[in-house]
Each structure stands twice: as C-alpha cells, then as structure tokens.
Design a protein around this nucleic acid. Sequence first.
DNA 1: CATGAATGAGGGTTCATTCAT
DNA 2: AATGAATGAACCCTCATTCAT
Lengths: 206, 206, 206, 206
Amino acid sequence: MQEVKLSRREREKLRQRRQMLAAALELFSEKGFHNVSMHEIAKRAEFAIGTLYKFFKNKEDLYKALVMEKAEEYHRVLMGVLSEEKDVLTVIEGYIVAKSRLFTDNLPILRLYFAETRGASFNIRAGLDQDIQRLYDKFIMRLVSVLQDGVRRKVFREMDPYHMAVALEGLTNAFLFCWMEDPEQHPYETNVPFIRDMFLNGVLNK
Amino acid sequence: MQEVKLSRREREKLRQRRQMLAAALELFSEKGFHNVSMHEIAKRAEFAIGTLYKFFKNKEDLYKALVMEKAEEYHRVLMGVLSEEKDVLTVIEGYIVAKSRLFTDNLPILRLYFAETRGASFNIRAGLDQDIQRLYDKFIMRLVSVLQDGVRRKVFREMDPYHMAVALEGLTNAFLFCWMEDPEQHPYETNVPFIRDMFLNGVLNK
Amino acid sequence: MQEVKLSRREREKLRQRRQMLAAALELFSEKGFHNVSMHEIAKRAEFAIGTLYKFFKNKEDLYKALVMEKAEEYHRVLMGVLSEEKDVLTVIEGYIVAKSRLFTDNLPILRLYFAETRGASFNIRAGLDQDIQRLYDKFIMRLVSVLQDGVRRKVFREMDPYHMAVALEGLTNAFLFCWMEDPEQHPYETNVPFIRDMFLNGVLNK
Amino acid sequence: MQEVKLSRREREKLRQRRQMLAAALELFSEKGFHNVSMHEIAKRAEFAIGTLYKFFKNKEDLYKALVMEKAEEYHRVLMGVLSEEKDVLTVIEGYIVAKSRLFTDNLPILRLYFAETRGASFNIRAGLDQDIQRLYDKFIMRLVSVLQDGVRRKVFREMDPYHMAVALEGLTNAFLFCWMEDPEQHPYETNVPFIRDMFLNGVLNK
DNA sequence: CATGAATGAGGGTTCATTCAT
DNA sequence: AATGAATGAACCCTCATTCAT
C-alpha cells in the first residue's frame, strides 16, 4: 500500500538496505555475530564500509535490524494463521504446518532467531532481547487465547491454556531442532503429524 | 574418596581452578564468550593474567573446560536417574524431577549449556560442539532405550521411541525455559506434574 | 618512466610506504628485530598502528619487505657492474668501487644485510633467508663466471674461480667492516686500492 | 692451578654453571637469543628456573657469560698460536689451521660469535659488544705485530701490517663461512692451503 | 553523497623475573 | 639453598568507527 508512494530514490535505498541485510545474514549465520567484521559484510554486499554505516549506525544496530526484520515476518505469518476463523483443531494443525514451513524455508536465520529468543542470547547486549521478547509475548498471548477458546468450547480439557501453549511450543521446537540438525533423518512429513498427535493426546477432551 | 590422597598443594590448585572457572562462569553467563576478556576473568578471580594461562592454555580452552565440566556433571546425574531399576513411569517422573532440579540449581551455566547443545553455538569453533554433542547423543540413546522398554512392556503405545524422547526433551526444556525467565511465575511444583501428565497422555497405552 | 602513470593516490601510498620502511630501518638497525615493537615503528613513522598493518600484514612481512627491497637494489647495482663489457681487471676494480660506495651510502641497512646474508640470522624464520640466499647465489655465480672468463683469457692463473670469488668477497667485506666501525680511520680511498692489489697479487698470472 | 683450591661445593657449582651454559648454547644456536625462554633453558639444563637466576642475574647476563666464555677460549687459543717462537710463515699457517679447527669443532657457538663480533650484533644491548670488541682488538694487535715483524724481516713487502691483518681475517672468515654453510662442499683440506697461498701471494716479498 | 584510508582502543597471549616456601 | 608458582608489563594484531575527499 504505502509502497506506491515511494520515490525511485527511496526504492533504491530499500533495495540497498535489503542487499546489506542479506549479506549480513549469510555471514552471521555462517560464522556468528562476533566472527564477522563490518568490512566483510560491506564487501559481500558490494558497498563501501562508509555506506554501510549510513544505513546502520553500528554493528549492533545492523544485527538488531536483521533479527527484528525476520522476527516481524515470522510474527506476521504465525499471527495470521492463529487468527483464521476456523475450528481450533484446524488452526492448531495450521500453526504446526506454518511454523514447520517457516523453519524449512529460512534455515539460516533460525540459528540467529533461537540464539536470541532462547537461551544463548548474550551475544548482543540487551535491547534486542526486549523487542523480540515483546513480539514473542504478543504471539504467545494470541496462542493462549486460541487455546482458551478451545477449552471454553470443551474441545480441550480444563487446563491452563498458558501451559498448553508452552507445551506446544516445546514440542514444535524440539522436532524442528531435530530437523535443523539432520533434515534427511527427520523429515517434515513425519514430524508434523507426530507433533499434532502428541499435543492433542495431551489436551483433547476424551 | 580419592580426595584424601590429594596433597595440600594439589588441593590448593583445585581450589584455584574452581575459583577461576567460577569467575569465568559468572562473566560468560552475564555477557557471553566474546564480550568477556581474559583480563576481566583474571581480575574477577583475583589472579594475575599469567596465572590464568597456567591453568588454561587459552581462552577457548577455559571455555571448553567450563562447559564440559558442567555437561559431564549433568550427564552423570541424568544417566544415573535413567539407569535406576524401577518401572518406566517412575523413571520418567524421576527424570523430569532431576532435570528440573538441575536447572533450578545451576541457572547461570544453563545459558551456556543450551548455547552449546542447541542451535546457536557458533560462539566456539568446532571441537566443543562435538564433545558435548557426543555426550548428549549418548544420553538420548539411553532415554530412547528406556522408552523402548516401556513400549515393549506395553506401558506405552506403539510409537517410535526416538520421537517420544524428542517430545519429552521438548516439553521439559520449554517449561524449564519459562522457569528460567520468570521463576516466580512458573514454579517447579506446577511444572513437573504438568510435564509428566502432558507427556504421559501422549504416550500411555489406554 | 612508469612513474608518470601513477595517480596522486598511488604516489601518496608509495610515499607512506617509504616513510614506514625508513622508520623501521632506523629502529631495526638501532636495536634489532626483536627489540623493536610495531607500535614503536608506527610512532616513529607518524602513523597509527592500524595503518602500518594496512601496508604490511605483520611484523615479519615488514621486515622482509625492508631487507628484500635493499637486497634487490644491491643485487641490481652489483650485477650491473659485473655485466659491463670491459676487460676483467676493470670490471673487478669497478666491482670493488661499487660495493664500497654501496656500503658508504647505506650504512644502516648493512647490519641488516649482513645479518641476513651471513650467519647469524635466526632472527627471522626461514623464507627470508632463502629469498636473500637465492639472490646472493645468483650474484656469486655471475662473479664466478666473470672470473672464469679471466682465467680462460689467461689474465688470471689456473685457479678455481669459485675460490677466487670467495676470496674477493672476504677481502671486500673485511675492509668494509673496518670502515663501518670507524670510517675516519679506514677511508674508502685507501681501502679500494689495497683490496684490489691484494686480490690481484693473489690471482694474476705473472 | 687454582682449581686445586676449590672446595667440593665450589666444584659442584662450577659443574652446574657449565651445565646451564651448555643448555643455553644448544638452544640459542638452534633458535636464536629471542626465541629461547629462560624456562626452556632451565628445563633443558634440568634445573629450576630460580636456580638459573641464582647463577645469572638475568637473561642478558647469561647470554653474555656464554659468549664471553667462548670468546675467551678462542682468544687464548689464537693468541697462543700467534705467540709461538717460529718464523712468520709458519706462525701464519699455524694460525689459519688453528682458526679452521676452532670453527670445525665449535660450529654451534659460531653463529653466536659472529652475530656479536660482526655486523648483526644488535641482538643484545651494548656492553657485550664492547667486551668482545676489546678482546678482539687485542688479538688483532697481536696479529699486526706478528705481521709487522715479517715486514721488518723483509719476509713481507712494505705494507701496512694492519691492512694485512684485515685481509687475513677477511680471507679466513670468508672461507670458513662457506664451510659453515656447506661443510661437504668446502672441506677444510682445500680451504687451508688456498687461504694461505692467496694471502701469501698478496704479501710476500718476491 | 559515497567512499575507503586512517585511527587507536582493546583483545589474547608470552615470558622475564620475583619471592614465599 | 633450591624451588617453581605467581606476577604483570608488553607484545602482536584486529576491527568498529570516523571523516576528509
């Protein structure tokens, strides 16, 4: 929508920015934040180092932009799925499928994403943590409300829907981690139904 | 037992080593591997930088020693629990309890532990990854064999025990992460039974 | 000739490089490789340490560049003299004169040069040794062939021309060392004819 | 003579000192002054580092002791030869032979010796230079007086005997350097007569 | 406005030397 | 007297960032 309004100059800028972020993503996911230099990024993106600094005020800022951008994309996709007006079970399955696909399509960013949302996020000083956390909390709240709805409709047992959400997150992440480590051995097609059944067995009203 | 044999000199050495590792753990878990300097660690441990290098031949070695030491301790504890000669359900519950306690008692090291066993560890070049991975693989295999036994005894449904293990890991980790982030909100006492029920509902033979 | 083509930028670069090498030469010849720090060189050359590393990838590289540059210059000059189409005696005398002048004009580099062509250069790990050695070997072979020519033409006695070359080198070096240590006492004007006579008395056909 | 007076304690001390110097010589001549650590020397000599420092107040002192000891030995030997009551020609030949033998027997120390008396002696700060220089000057003066005597006796031409000495030094060193670099190619047996003839042709009265 | 040369703080590491035991 | 653990100054080098062109 708003894209219509962009001048040629602004579009060009955006293209350059994307190019830089893409180069940075490649390098960061290959070698990690601290093992990549700004010069390296500039070179890979085919810009001068000074130009890089015109777009991002420092290395941390670049990193944050990179992770946030992807986090927002994920957020958008997953929130979209959770907001569909379908019955709970379909929504849940849809969520599992969508998340799996997200992983499958974006392997490189995932290490970064998890490095930040989970555990090992001391790479980067504060700030980023909070922004991502906020996004993630919003998402969890949405998931909780979907599950709560399922409880209200007696599709699920009487359980704390927050716990249910945590369980679902744990199950999906665990299998997707397996897939990340060895895609052949743990294919998408086996994981998705297994996660779904495992989850539903734990929560469905008998 | 063997400690009786240690000379005063050796005991002193061990005490120093522990002091250094403790200082390093504090700093690494506060700021991450790359944001901590050897000088900083030496200072916090109250030794000269040269003394630090007498104990650990370089920064990576120190880090590896730190993480491996803890990993081996966890491995020992959890393997012990999984090897008890009790019925499967008791063993599983015992495992959940033990893992919870391990987390509860060792919060600082956990970020490091997860940074290494899970995804985002480009912090350290190879080597460590592999050693820890090997330990973790061994543990998973033990867990798989416990679950497989449960399947054979018809306690559990006919399911791939590896998948079951992944599911159990996913559930425990997810709840323990929650606890890590906000211990008050997600107390140990609520988490353990929830994890257990969630897991068992998914796998028990009806 | 080719200098005409250099852009202002390139000329500036060259000037800086020369400045750094000059500073390094001063310091190295004052205190030796190991007693000079890169910071010291940078400071004396009036550049930041980082700039120094833009030009030379490490300390050894800088040292090697310094020594090789001069070695090549000497090589060029002396080879030139030995290649002139004159009678052997003139060429030999020309060589003695040229070598003396080279010493006289480049006192500081000489200690380095001798440190490398002669004996005591464990300062620097391999590599340089070989490159310089190769250059020096080439030069000696040229000298040998000049002397051999003299033997063929019956100007010199029937002697091993390699031995003659070694003798000539020994004589020139010895006198030039004396001059290096005390230029007043052992002036160029007395040394040159003495070296020539001494050498010729040893080799001339009577 | 004075050794008779040494107590057992003092003899033991001397033995230790020699052991340390021997270890240091091995290491220095293998790797050069700056690439050998005091710990390394202590270890090779099989003493504690502290004991090393009881004998030599610092690394430079150890180095100086090492080089001076050998220098004095050489000095003694060569001065002895030059002081024999024989005719000049025999003395000169004796000197060439003795010097050759000294080289042949003490290859390891030679690189150090030349590093200090010639050219590349910035390894060590002043002090050593002067002491060795003084010794060497004494020796040269002795050589000069031997040669002067030859001139007086009309064995040699009317030449500056100092120049003659320098020439003799240059010739012997050059051939001995060749031998150092490739002992097979430049054997002692060919070098000695060549040096003698070369020198004598330059100086003998016809 | 894009560029990339220049900067220098700060990191990991070594090793000569001291001193309590 | 002999020891060797402990020290910390100083080294080489990297890289995020700035700014004149």
